[in-house]
Write a protein that binds this DNA or RNA. Structure first.
Lengths: 130, 130
DNA sequence: TAAGTGCATTATATCACTTAATACACTTAA
DNA sequence: TTAAGTGTATTAAGTGATATAATGCACTTA
């Protein structure tokens, strides 16, 4: 539950998920929400590892997945930079949204809620998130 | 992707999740959707294990979690039975729904979608599940 | 009594995740 | 040229969750 500030991003790691996945999610979220400027540099692997008190290899794994999604570009000897391709960011955003929706609706259906019931529940429980 | 019929339920196991979790989810779903009658008996641990071609201990783990949630009652020497307490089933259903909603909204928020955007996307992608 | 229940125990194996320690190629600035 | 900082690759080791295997026990029913 410890919060760490680094490179204009806030990080909170716990043991509920793989560390590399949490780093990946939180950097991707910062990009998607526009909290970090396109084209800007993110902390180096070693710097991030030290700040989060985790192994550089674990950070590497997260960074490599970001690059596979073309959300970052890495320049050998220089560092890792957020893409300047805003269309790519939008693509990732909507792809993630579609997947989240499918998962959500599938789970709700497995508990026997139809579209109408889901709509009603969304109004009831939808008010109080972060 | 192999589908197995047993005890009035359809099972499909894969390697994407722990086996005990998949068994747990699919039995719980059958109860929640009313596909299996309250008070009825579900297959024995050994029977289920043989049908799904997995270890009895793995089935046990799923069954124990069902009993912890009071969705089943086990009678030593007799077997495992679905609860007759319909209110309990409803409680589990709505608790699960609330959790799914919170997770969904949290994920969408992390990608920068507000309530209005979520509503719009639900209409767009909401049609084609199952 | 025999067969079928849930349940407990012990051992083993596998896999994902994480850390650790090094090393190398590259870039930049002193 | 040098030194420091980049990403990256490699090898080794440890840990925990998951799953299987083999056995046995207490209980219930036919």
């Amino acid at each position: 539950m410890e919060e760490v500030q680094i490179g204009g991003m806030r990080f909170t790691l716990d043991l509920s998920q793989p560390l590399y996945e949490q780093v990946l999610d939180q950097v991707r979220s910062s990009i998607a929400k526009g909290e970090i400027a396109l084209g800007s540099k993110i902390p180096s692997v070693r710097e991030m590892a030290q700040a989060l008190k985790i192994n550089p290899n674990t950070v590497m794994r997260a960074y490599q997945e970001l690059e596979r999604d073309q959300l970052t570009e890495t320049r050998r000897g220089q560092g890792t930079y957020i893409t300047t391709d805003s269309a790519r960011v939008e693509q990732i955003r909507y792809r993630a949204a579609e997947q989240a929706i499918q998962e959500f609706l599938g789970k709700m259906a497995s508990f026997g809620f139809d579209a109408q019931a889901i709509e009603k529940l969304l109004r009831k429980y939808g008010g109080e998130s972060t």
